[in-house]
């Protein structure tokens, strides 16, 4: 029990939290952009799996990590385009098209894995990169500043997405399209084009989330390796109230409790393991229930835009 209160443990928990948060950050931030423009993409999980596979495959065959990242972004953007085609152009019900995307990504990534690689193997992925100076701060240094490159990129995306949404004309248009597409259209904002862009970017970011597992955190690819992260990532967008910083805080809370429950099991304080695994899910719900109410839901979320049928 006392093992839980040592500095090593504290560093360990924080380090885990940051690492665990990474795939969620990529996926949730992408989803935030997409939802702010009014499109719910429930297919994040499938896009993550395809990204994980694409990145892994390129790293296995070429050894180039950069190539892996590019492959993930490319494949993710492609699936994002497909999602936009279905959800924006064909105005499909977004809950259902997301499930279709999930199944397609799950199946296709597994099938391609089986046909190309055939067996589980590992790669040399992104190595941990200790930031000089910062990483030697006691306790916090090794916890926060000794991670692989993709972890830093994920966190750097938070202010970037916040800036994009809140401080740029692009962001203004995205929010306008998400809140009132008819009005935005009247003002000459290209509703369809903007939704295409956000869903495509969202897909690319989800795929990066997958790649952050397969070529950074775990360094293997296995069928269905994300195991539900994509769905939690969508849920955490709601937690964060569609604001990048809020989303990040939600992710950090979820990751912190996830890391903590592993340590609780590890030091053996006697809670049944199944109940420990439940903790992050329960606490996330409770935290949101207790948080002050805030609205921020894009008014036109899940509503397709149809100029003729205003």
């Amino acid at each position: 029990m006392e093992q839980l209160f040592t500095l090593t443990t504290l560093t360990g928990i924080l380090h885990s939290t940051i690492r665990l948060a990474t795939p969620y950050l990529f996926a949730s931030l992408g989803e935030t952009i997409s939802q702010r423009s009014g499109v719910l993409n429930l297919g994040v999980e499938g896009q993550m799996l395809m990204g994980a596979f694409a990145a892994f495959f390129v790293v296995v065959t070429t050894g180039s990590l950069l190539g892996g990242v590019v492959a993930a972004i490319f494949v993710g953007a492609l699936l994002g385009l497909l999602m936009a085609l279905v959800s924006v152009s064909f105005r499909a019900e977004q809950g259902i098209s997301g499930i279709g995307m999930y199944l397609l990504g799950l199946g296709l990534s597994s099938l391609l894995f089986r046909l190309t690689l055939g067996s589980v193997q590992s790669v040399r992925g992104f190595a941990e990169l200790a930031l000089p100076g910062l990483s030697s701060i006691p306790v916090l240094g090794p916890a926060l500043f000794k991670h692989s490159l993709l972890v830093y990129v994920a966190f750097a995306l938070v202010p970037m997405v916040a800036y994009l949404l809140n401080r740029t004309t692009w962001g203004l248009n995205i929010r306008a399209v998400g809140d009132n597409p008819q009005a935005a259209d009247t003002l000459g904002v290209p509703v369809i084009a903007i939704r295409y862009a956000t869903v495509t970017v969202g897909g690319a970011m989800a795929a990066m989330g997958g790649a952050s597992l397969s070529i950074s955190a775990v360094n293997i690819f296995q069928e269905n390796m994300t195991g539900g992260i994509g769905f939690i990532a969508v849920a955490l967008v709601y937690f964060g109230g569609w604001r990048p910083v809020g989303v990040m805080l939600g992710i950090l809370l979820f990751s912190l409790v996830s890391a903590l429950q592993i340590w609780l099991q590890l030091v053996g304080i006697g809670i049944p393991s199944d109940l420990a695994v439940m903790l992050p899910y329960i606490l996330t719900i409770i935290a949101l229930a207790l948080a002050p109410r805030r609205t921020g839901q894009p008014a036109a979320l899940t509503r397709p835009f149809n100029r003729g049928m205003a």
Binding site: G46, V86, I96, S97, L103, L104, L106, G107, S109, E223
Partner: peptide, 12 residues
């Protein structure tokens, strides 16, 4: 996996 992918395609 092929079956899963096909299912997804049908749904889409």
């Amino acid at each position: 996996a092929l079956i899963t992918a096909l299912n997804g395609l049908v749904v889409l």
